[in-house]
Design a protein around this nucleic acid. Sequence first.
RNA 1: GCCAGGGUGGUGUAGCCUGGUUAGCACAGGGGACUGUGGAUCCCCUAGCCCGGGUUCAAAUCCCGGCCCUGGCCCCA
Length: 437
Amino acid sequence: MKLKLERVKGTRDLLPEEMAKRRWVFERLREVFERYNFHEVLTPTFEYTELFKLRSGEEVVEQLYAFDDKGGRNLSLRPDMTSSVARLYVNSFQNAPKPVKWYYIANMFRYEEPQSGRYREFWQAGVELLGSSRVEADAEVIALFVESYLATGLDEFTVNIGDRILLDEFARMLGVKDDIGLMRLIDKKDKLSEEDFVEALKEFGLDDYGIEKVIALIEIKGLPDEVLPKAEELFTSREAKVEIARIYELVDLLNTYGVGERILIDLGIARGFDYYTSVVFEAIAPNDIGIGSIGGGGRYDNLIEVFGGKPTPATGFAIGIERLIPILEWKGIIPEPKLRPDIYVIPIGKESGVRKAAVEVVTALRMAGVKADIELTGRKIGKALDYAGRLGVPYVIIIGKRDLAEGKVTVRDMESGEQRVVGKERVVEEILNLTAL
RNA sequence: GCCAGGGUGGUGUAGCCUGGUUAGCACAGGGGACUGUGGAUCCCCUAGCCCGGGUUCAAAUCCCGGCCCUGGCCCCA
């Protein structure tokens, strides 16, 4: 009779090798975040469902992992970190010196159909910068965004920058009420052929003038110097002019940060979340494994207020770990983790004196900082060496009563098969010499 | 939520179309040959038809439903 114990749909078990690689990526990210003086926070995995509903978006609410706890509270697993961070800020940091610079590396939950690069539980590494509305803050965050990918060794990627104010303005110019619908359509521009795209725009209800304008908008994509002048032609309102000037300034700063060559303007990008208010951006890395955006972010100046706080401007980004790692792996960037021990201690026989000597040796090695393991299954020496060989352990220490009677143990080089008998007291020194080479 | 293709020991697979012995093979795991010397060899053992229903004398095989996986749509990290 076998119990049916299945992993929940859309979740994964991470095995030692994957964990080691993941940790390597986390460490690289954490390092850069810290260097930019962001500080790590962690909020609860679940919050009141109300919190996530507040910032609207039916789509997001439908994807919540919601449940009632025993106290009758309606709770949800977090679908992202921004809401929780905003809640934390409103709760206790409104009077903290500005800006508040936080980062997190945590798991998120969304009830969606799993597919390539998408799980129901996934991890994000992100930052939030609260309390500055200045373009310098956007530049700081986007520069860090670029540096984060560079830190993981990713070489081929771009950060595309768009703007919500301009998109809203655009929808207004065309007299479109369903601005979100239009944005989604525009978002799909790269997936459709020119004809299909025009067809879709017609279906959406645009006239020839509108279609012409949309085409003009999506052509505003490329190097900032080349496409921003086009934006100035397309947008005429004062508000739009101000925003475009701000983007110029942003680009200029990003050049100063030294990340300018990664930056492209793409006024067609909208980003999913409704809470973004002006600059939005996403990172794209070319790949053959069906992965789109590997991270994104933007400015959200209204969210804190929506959560009942004093109006506080904010900006941030999130990197999708389950999207970044496959690309890094695909490119062979993540170093192969070393899981095997450097030393494997094999006691021969079952006599307690011998086995204790083996424990003494392995303990001494471990205290000296050596990654050492000891035979624990009682298998015979032949099988034990077989095991060590398969694992690729470079050195084995064999402890038997014959040598032990003279206070000695055998050190075996698994590569060459050479063995030497050394004093038990000297074995740590011996190993440190060997492994240093 | 929708669509397509899949699901056979831990892993990879044969068998399915054309229903019929004890579901075959390889690797991995455990033990032995071998009570102090490895990756070899030989032997033994462990272990499987995703779940439920239907058709049938008989179902891994055919049919229906569900679950899960892979990918696509939607959306997004």
